[in-house]
Design a protein around this nucleic acid. Sequence first.
DNA 1: TTGCTTACTGTACGATCGTATAATAGTATC
DNA 2: GATACTATTATACGATCGTACAGTAAGCAA
Lengths: 210, 210
Amino acid sequence: MSDTRKSFSRESEEKRTMDLIVATQMCIERGGVGEASIRRIADEAGVTPGLVRHYFPDKEALICAAYRQTMADMFKGARQGVDELPGNAIDKMRLFINTSLHPGVMNSRYHQLWASFTSLTRSTPSMAKIHHESYLEFRMGCQDLVELVFAEIGREVSAKALEQYGIMVNAILDGLWLEGCLAMELFDDGELAEIGLRSVQSVLDIEGLI
Amino acid sequence: MSDTRKSFSRESEEKRTMDLIVATQMCIERGGVGEASIRRIADEAGVTPGLVRHYFPDKEALICAAYRQTMADMFKGARQGVDELPGNAIDKMRLFINTSLHPGVMNSRYHQLWASFTSLTRSTPSMAKIHHESYLEFRMGCQDLVELVFAEIGREVSAKALEQYGIMVNAILDGLWLEGCLAMELFDDGELAEIGLRSVQSVLDIEGLI
DNA sequence: TTGCTTACTGTACGATCGTATAATAGTATC
DNA sequence: GATACTATTATACGATCGTACAGTAAGCAA
């Protein structure tokens, strides 16, 4: 039909794969899963639809890859600087809470991606697996920080209690993150982070977080 | 094409509308927004696709109606019995937390619906409005209960502080609800409700909730 | 029973979907 | 510069989508 073919340059598998994943994120970000068709993703990535199948066996595999990437991005964003921080455990916890509840992580873009992927976990087993893994990873991140804090102040708790504290902190961060993502305009800058610090301090019955 | 027409009976607008809304919920519950096509919804409701347009101007209107209905269902479920409870404010708060974090409200069905609708709020203004309204309604429900509790024990707090307590309680419930919906099998019966009670008690610095 | 209203069915249309595959061209090797 | 490899394009196919609309029958009023 067309008399001129699209010119192109060959790229590495890593680049093309990542381009397609990022394009998928952008499509979903724009209008949910329904907006993320193979054609639109390819267009967003600057390639033609046929190429997608060259790198991913089917659409589901691409969506899964984008899901994994999104969760990795968010997790990395939330823990930014926490592990490198030379300070004590309380400082790490404070930074973790602050970072998780600031615009770098708590924004409508991540929320849109998160909600879209989450809505697929029930019907797609491979996505349910990703969801499960990333949930546990985040919860364990919370739990490990709690453990550090308790060790620092010399408090001893059972493994079960520690787990429940992890669940609590995770819930508070998830809940505040949700509120912030969904209604950013209702809160002042740093308000949710402050509420998060106060809540976690209360729940863990510790001091020095604020 | 077919030699026999589908027999039918005329029904009231209320019934047909509700049938279509429920059918929409069931389709979304089954496999996300992608599964909720007009044809499948009509089939689920026991009517033909053409009828949908007789009651709803387009698909978006039907999805919005289903969104509203779902949020109303959840809100009603969470407040079940709370307002009728003759007891004191602490009892109301306890019941509210327990009910919100038990299977009647905290289940994968509601979560699937919630996540699916939520993923549409960014690109569809009419759904963003519904989302905003239902979020504020739930948060105010939390805040009102906090106010009742504080009044009961004679604690006086500023309006701003009260609002922040409402945000905290809402976040804790949202966060735990999410955890429970997404990984029900990781928790014992009533474990999350208990964690919720302990967290709220800590955060509000009150007694008698557990 | 007849006729009227309209809830409801059935079919059609153009667009878009995911996938398959043949044809092409960029690039490295010799 | 010719050759081989394969990343990439282009096109096709059948299915399904949302919507439009003409035709049909259910149920009520007279």
